[in-house]
Every structure is written in structure tokens, then in C-alpha cells.
Write a protein that binds this DNA or RNA. Structure first.
Lengths: 211, 211
DNA sequence: TGTACATCAGTGAACGCGCGTTCACTGATGTAC
DNA sequence: TGTACATCAGTGAACGCGCGTTCACTGATGTAC
């Protein structure tokens, strides 16, 4: 008996055992394929191949291709959350917020294929895992917003800030904004966040409320 | 001799002629396929089929699949531009801006597959048509920003606003924000735009500049 | 402690599919004389 | 005005590909006696 890092127990007999944890191995294989070849390269067959297993083996663990994709996306959400938390554990100023935004975009650009699987796929929008992960992100952003902007409409502003950062990620990812150097991207993201949070209104009936 | 709506002249002999304008017909066919079946359904073969032509015929007009996709995306950009201009010819207040944002997101939700081809495809980011179209959007947003927020950093704020709207579009498109009723979407988008443009800063060193 | 057995994870061959792309071709078109 | 010809848009058959999924199977595993 030994255990994986995630605590799942597994029977390892040393040589060739039934495989041990194909379920997890397929997700790892899928992640590797995404790193290497982009979202196009990710197929059930390719994941099975990479895991050293027959094309039909995955069906013991996943109902179909979409089920595997969902599992992969779930890992992606978890890693994104960690990545943001590392950038700043509890952001409370606009500078902190900009740092988190930069991290979000950096994550997208470093793992573009994974990011696309997480967000770009129209499939299975009602998978439980995905819904939960989405909710987690919304909550996380919401907490930041309440800390930074206590007087604002929290729902609307959370949505806006998530959308802002998410849009920056996708525009870079899709080449609509130049992403050739990480520093330039970081600077652009930071500037955009700051610009939006210090915008001076020329045409609104009354000037913004300042506490 | 007769002419298409776009002015290209064409030889129509009445019955079955060489086809006349396969180039344009393929783009139309592709657009129809996108409307009907999503981005997955769009293949060179399917477009040829729909245009009533052999699978090899498109190669007279497009080098490969990506070339057709680029042409389709170009049409999409043109239509998006028209759609936004219809929403408001020259927005100059935050309300106008919100209306344009709502239109942008509505376009994405009404023609999701086309929108994905325009933005979600990693392919051929250096096609001339696409670069030009991207620049056109940036310019359009830039003009709005200069009109609405003359004192702001125009580049940063244009980027931010495009990203905000683009992010709202994708989050709805991908089911991260509920898009079941158009009215709710419009309200959410409008609220988000207003929230961001009237944000009251709690933690910045100095209050925002008001003219 | 040893043996019979049920379980079930993985095999491998096969299915039908649609795809992008190529190739030698054909036949209508417009043009040069 | 009529005819010969070059052009070139579209044909249709074929290529090899990888995919998702199914099926009857096998063989290692853990368990009950």
C-alpha cells in the first residue's frame, strides 16, 4: 500500500499492476497534451496513448470525452485559484488588485490551452464541478471588491472587475493585444486596471462619490 | 451581365454557369453553418456541400481552411462594427457607452459561433484582414473614450473598456454568467459598466480627479 | 493457510465518421484572329 | 461574324488521418470459505 500526493490509496505491486490510478493519470496526460500541443491535441485517444493504455480504457473512468474535459477544467480552476492567491493572499488596494489581475492574465498566457478548456469550451456548462469553480471565482472577486470598494454596488462591480480581467486575458490570448513580452503585458494590464479605477468622468450628471 | 449587392460583376447565363461567385457563396455558406450548428460544424467540406459544389472546389478560391475562416471572421468584424454603430452612432456619455456595451454582448450571444471564430480561434492571428479589423475596433473604442473621458489616459482606458465589454461577452457566452434572458444580460452589462465608471475609491492615496 | 471464485480494470480489434487535401480531368467561358 | 484556342472554375474519386465509441475478451486482484 502506498498513497498518491492527493491521499488516494493505491495498490502498487511494483511491476505492472492494473495501473493504479488511471483516472488521475488521464487527467495528467491531458494536461501535458494541452501544454504541448494546444487544445486541438486533446482527445480521449491521445490521453489514453500518453497514459500507456488502450483507447477504450478511459471509458472505465469517464463516461465520455466531455467528462474528461470537465475533470481537466476542474484542475485548471484549482490551479488558477492557487496562482491568484500566491500573487496576493488578500488584496485590498487597487495596486493589490492590479497585481492579481496581472497574475490572472499571466496564467492565461502561460497555459493558454488549459485556459481555453476552462473557459472557451461551450460544452457541459452545467457540470457540477465547473459551476462550483465558477462560483468560487465569483466569491473570491466579490471579497476583494468589498474590501477595496465598500461603498460600491458589490455585485455589479465584482462582475465588472472579473469581466475586465477576463477580457484582458482573452484579448491577449487571441492576439488582439500584443503579448510578445510578459513585461509589456503586465504593464498594460496594470495600466488598464488603474485607469478604470481612477477614471475621471466628464459627462456624468454628478461627479463620483468620494468618501 | 448583372451585379451582386456588393457591386462585383458576374456573368449569369441563366442556367448552370461556372457558379458566378463561389468565393462569396462559400462565406455565406460558412456563416449559415455557424448560425445553425456552432463552430464545430464549420469545415471546408461542409461549406462546399452547402454551396452545392465539390469538396475540392473551394481550393480555387481559398488556400486552405484557415483562409476561409479568416474571410468569415472579416465579415463578422464588419457586421459587429455596423451593429455597434446602430446601437449608438457616437456615444458620448456613460449611458451611451453602456448601450454600446449591451449591443456588443448581444451580438456575441446572438451569433456565438461567429463570435468565437472572430475571437476564440488561435489560428492566423497575423492575417491582414484580422489585424485591420482589430485596429478598427480599437480606434472606435478610442474615439468613444476620448469623447467621454478627455482627461484619462486614452490608451489604458480604451483597453480597459474594450476588455471589460469583451470579458462580459465571453463570460456570458461560456455560461459563467447567466444568459438565459436577454433583459437580465442587458441589465447586468449596463450595471457593470456603470459600476466601473462611477466607482468610489476607498483605498487610493488621492481621490479621483474631477474636472 | 490454501483454494475457488466473483469482480472489474484494461485489451485489442473493429465500427463508421468526417475531415483536409491532392490529382488528373472536363467543359464552359471569353478572346484573338 | 465565325471559328480555334487558351484559360480556368468546378468535378469526382481517392489518399490517409485521427477521432469517439462499442464489444466480447482476459487476466490480475481481493475476498469468502
Amino acid at each position: 500500500m502506498s498513497t498518491w500526493e492527493d491521499g488516494r490509496s493505491v495498490r502498487t505491486t511494483g511491476g505492472t499492476y492494473h495501473h493504479g490510478d488511471l483516472r488521475a493519470a488521464l487527467v495528467s496526460a491531458a494536461l501535458e497534451l494541452l501544454e504541448e500541443g494546444g487544445a486541438t491535441e486533446l482527445s480521449l485517444r491521445a490521453a489514453a496513448r500518453r497514459a500507456g493504455v488502450a483507447p477504450s480504457a478511459p471509458y472505465r473512468h469517464y463516461a465520455d470525452r466531455d467528462a474528461l474535459l470537465s475533470a481537466v477544467a476542474a484542475v485548471g480552476y484549482r490551479e488558477l485559484a492557487e496562482y491568484l492567491a500566491t500573487a496576493h493572499p488578500s488584496p485590498s488596494t487597487t495596486d493589490d488588485l492590479a497585481a492579481v489581475a496581472v497574475a490572472y492574465v499571466r496564467f492565461a498566457l502561460q497555459r493558454p490551452a488549459l485556459f481555453r478548456v476552462m473557459f472557451g469550451e461551450p460544452c457541459d456548462r452545467d457540470s457540477g464541478e465547473r459551476v462550483a469553480a465558477t462560483a468560487a471565482i465569483a466569491t473570491y472577486v466579490g471579497a476583494i471588491v468589498e474590501r477595496c470598494f465598500p461603498t460600491a454596488d458589490p455585485d455589479a462591480l465584482s462582475t465588472a472587475i472579473w469581466a475586465l480581467v477576463h477580457g484582458l486575458a482573452f484579448l491577449h490570448l487571441d492576439g488582439k493585444l500584443d503579448s510578445s513580452t510578459p513585461d509589456a503585458v503586465a504593464a498594460r494590464v496594470s495600466a488598464a486596471v488603474h485607469a478604470v479605477l481612477t477614471v475621471s468622468l466628464a459627462n456624468t450628471p454628478e461627479p463620483p462619490l468620494v468618501p
